[in-house]
Design a protein around this nucleic acid. Sequence first.
DNA 1: TTGAAAGCGCTAACAA
DNA 2: TTGTTAGCGCTTTCAA
Lengths: 359, 359
Amino acid sequence: MTPLSGTPAPSARATIRDVAALAGVSVKTVSRVVNREGGVSAALTERVEEAAHRLGYRPDHGARTLRRTDRRTATIGLLLEDVENPYSAALHRAVENVARTRGVAVLTASVDETPERERELVTAFASRRVDGLIIMPVAPDQAHLDAERRAGVPVVFVDRSPPAFECDSVVADNAGGATVATRHLLGAGHRRIAFLGDRLAIATTHERRAGYLAALELAGIDVPAQHVVTDLPTIEAAEAAAVALLQSSAAPTALFTAQNLVTIGAIRALRRLGRHRDVAVVGFDDFVLADLLEPGVTVVAQDPRGIGRLAAELLFRRVDGDAGPYLRQVLPTRLITRGSGEIPPPVLAADAAGAGGHR
Amino acid sequence: MTPLSGTPAPSARATIRDVAALAGVSVKTVSRVVNREGGVSAALTERVEEAAHRLGYRPDHGARTLRRTDRRTATIGLLLEDVENPYSAALHRAVENVARTRGVAVLTASVDETPERERELVTAFASRRVDGLIIMPVAPDQAHLDAERRAGVPVVFVDRSPPAFECDSVVADNAGGATVATRHLLGAGHRRIAFLGDRLAIATTHERRAGYLAALELAGIDVPAQHVVTDLPTIEAAEAAAVALLQSSAAPTALFTAQNLVTIGAIRALRRLGRHRDVAVVGFDDFVLADLLEPGVTVVAQDPRGIGRLAAELLFRRVDGDAGPYLRQVLPTRLITRGSGEIPPPVLAADAAGAGGHR
DNA sequence: TTGAAAGCGCTAACAA
DNA sequence: TTGTTAGCGCTTTCAA
């Protein structure tokens, strides 16, 4: 810690009255100039602007909101799982980009999969009279939002849409993406494909598992119970689960890892066991550097920026008064093949080697 | 888009007067209950709480701020380079964690290295009367903050401290970390070590280059001009610059990449050229999966969470009235060796191979 | 323990 | 074109 020479200055904030006094006009004239209402002579406009500048005047947005008829704060609230998570961060940025075009500020917070925190934050943001809320919901029950809905605060859910709650939402095609991932592994010849996922209480985990199971059922393949592992909330948990699974007697030849941290944990496990070149992996969610690993990691990518952008656009339509029926927007996913998902199962690999030998 | 059956409800927000009327008490009594001031009988307290709950009452934080003597909004502003950047996101999360303990909300925005945007956002947040600001500054001139300082809004700079501006700041030991990185490469036997960095207008780039140059000068090594490449703002720019450098006649045997995106760009370049096992790299800033690449990437890690935490703690001390001299806190960096920084230069590598042959 | 009145900084409504 | 007055929802101040 290096103490410098200066010290912080004491407080003093100029009000509209101070500006009016310095410019020698009424407060209403200052208001007109500050809000660019027009109808003020050039001479007065200049005097007011000069005075405002001299005093470092910043209109008090809260006071303005209090008096205005529309009661807008030009602020929205964004509740993410964790602002540091790359998926959340990408979504955050997309929301900010839309908000920026409207001069709207964004209050952000991390919910950490804690229903209680979700409730606290909704209340805190509602007290600050946000114009709308974008929420990545954790609480299985969204009844705590009733007061906000009655107050007319628009809410858009992202990533997950709460069951049994009429609302706007923007989500990825989780079941469809999981089916594509699973079929891709089936296509490579795998029949023993395991599912590793985050907490089953999260709707996305549930949907992805459903997509995985549907693909296998359609292929007429029975899934042993130990091939479906969920409630892996961290990289470490996923790594441990993958190691245990691969060392078990019923070891799969391929993994469908249904979330980005789970994928990373599984990759660590394969490295640790030296199996990363012979066990296939397809992950849900893309991540940075997935292409530079060896082998590159095949994923089903969602579009967090697209989800954020659409959610913000929908929210602002509601803020602007759109009272149409609730919308549920589902964004497609995209398979990106990079190597790990194209590894064949051991038997076929041996066949391929044999066939190669006949050339 | 799937239209659902329900539709959004119309607006209606209960005020303290509505609660008072329903409970059959005065507004002051409601205020006392809501703020837990005490001095209200148990019977009335219960009636008020019941009424508030029935109406979904949320105290208007803005109106409260307007009237209160301390004028606190319980909201701070955080200006980051880009909320999506992992470094910014980690710092963001640390700030949020500290703010949370005080019931303070965080307004966040991305400045995108645009001085004009920095000014706009400071104004927007100042109008919303944030209790304080944490800023990752871009603008070389911070004079636009004068009005805020006069108004007594505490400001803490993070990551970079603006030159010629008396202020609080929390930064990493950029020069020191760069020197450590460069010495590490010197220690592996390298004499032709290039510097790749972000925009030189950013203070951190400047400091890291200074640390790099200092280490080489101390070792008595001349640095050819083409070995110092800056103003690489993207992964793509860094990749292109690294390719050009490595294909030039004066190709270095080692790279010090002075920022996380630059490091990733350089690694892509080395992969593309098939040189990732014989050109050494040390990066500034750690990143996810750096350990799973082949070779693992040696870095000088900063502590963005530590910077965020300290910045928030310092800010809140100022908010609480600490008027001591301005502080500049410098956090240490840490060398993490993973392989890429320990690759020897070609000549020594040949020697080593020769020596191995004699065993 | 409870309440009435004033006013925070601003804009709506109206007047000159 | 400019100004005056009231009041947004709340807390402060003061009184009962």
